[in-house]
Write a protein that binds this DNA or RNA. Structure first.
Lengths: 198, 198
DNA sequence: GTCTATAAAAGGATAGAC
DNA sequence: GTCTATCCTTTTATAGAC
């Protein structure tokens, strides 16, 4: 009867370990330990490491990609949309420090799996791009440059945290966290400013 | 007498495989195959996977970090320095598509090893930061924001290539490569523009 | 220096008892 | 549903012949 409990414990543990170490770096034993159970039970619930990993990746990816919809919401001004998007995106990553690198690394490891991921979110990249073009009043090329700039500025500082906190703050993670918090405001300014002056 | 030849073949193969798959994803067998030798010889030259990996990582990291020096070169204008830095940085990554994610992932896997990496390049992060502050005529805080913005805009589009080429160009890698080429010019504009209008 | 063969260890997966 | 014990494969590492 503790079915849901155990399944949830496994999923929590797997998310933690997979995100930290990636598919290959993570070991079933470690996930079992983290969940407070043994390896056999992992297989009982999820048959194989591959299947367990798939489940986690899908969950994690689905949490981030759909946020692009914020940028299509025509009821808000462009300024507002950018501010909200940046803030929400960065907040998710503050709460899941390993998320960005996990996604990037695993997509590189197995790019072919991406297609199913997209369809499982119910969002088509092409449609989202067109929606942004129309609602931001930009050409499609401008949208692409704009989008990549914004994602770069939001995501990279988290992906590179272990490196940058060392370079910029001599390894003081707390100081680097403040720096990131500050960026929630400065990044939208930076982006919107560049839209005006081009 | 083929000593140097073989060692070099191993290093080339190891760089290739490690960069593509990371420490855990790479297998000694695969590296041996790529080098056209057998596993035993790998161990003869480098004793263990760990030691071989260390050697590669040090090499690769040492190739990128010192480029920050470009930004300290006071004989050039700020505009020039940014243009040169962005172009050189992005060119290195065009030639080594797996480089950015490799470095970010492995630093996260073992952040403690970073200290030796820095010292082995002979560059101290603190000194570089101060040099930039003086020669760019910014406060240290401004330098940090500026530097992270620039690195984000240069590196992330490469790290996320498999994802972004799918979102932006329906998986057409050639089209995405053109997009990246275009950014060698647009990124410096973007950055310099924001410095003026703040 | 380079190879074949093999040891030794780790890790994923299953059988079977409870 | 959960555990212990065990199997099987993969992978790292070494021994020893050439």
């Amino acid at each position: 009867m503790t079915e849901k409990q155990t399944e949830q414990k496994i999923l929590d543990a797997a998310r933690e370990i997979f995100m930290r170490k990636g598919m290959h770096g993570a070991k079933m034993q470690e996930i079992a330990d983290e969940a407070g159970i043994n390896k056999a039970l992992l297989h009982y619930y999820f048959r194989s490491k591959d299947k367990l990993f798939d489940r986690i990746f899908q969950e994690v990816f689905g949490q981030l990609f759909p946020k692009l919809q914020i940028l299509v919401d025509a009821t808000k001004s462009i300024e507002e949309r950018v501010q909200i998007f940046v803030k929400e995106y960065m907040t998710v990553m503050q709460q899941n420090p390993f998320l960005p690198l996990f996604i990037l690394h695993e997509i590189q490891r197995d790019p072919d799996s991406l297609h199913e991921r997209f369809t499982s979110t119910g969002l088509q990249p092409e449609i989202v791009m067109q929606g942004m073009s129309a609602s931001l009043d930009m050409t499609v090329d401008e949208v692409k440059m704009f989008l990549v700039n914004m994602l770069s500025l939001c995501i990279f500082p988290f992906a590179a945290k272990p490196l940058l906190s060392r370079i910029l703050y001599a390894g003081d993670d707390k100081a680097y966290d403040s720096f990131l918090e500050e960026r929630k405001l400065s990044v939208p300014e930076f982006i919107l400013n560049s839209l005006k002056n081009q």
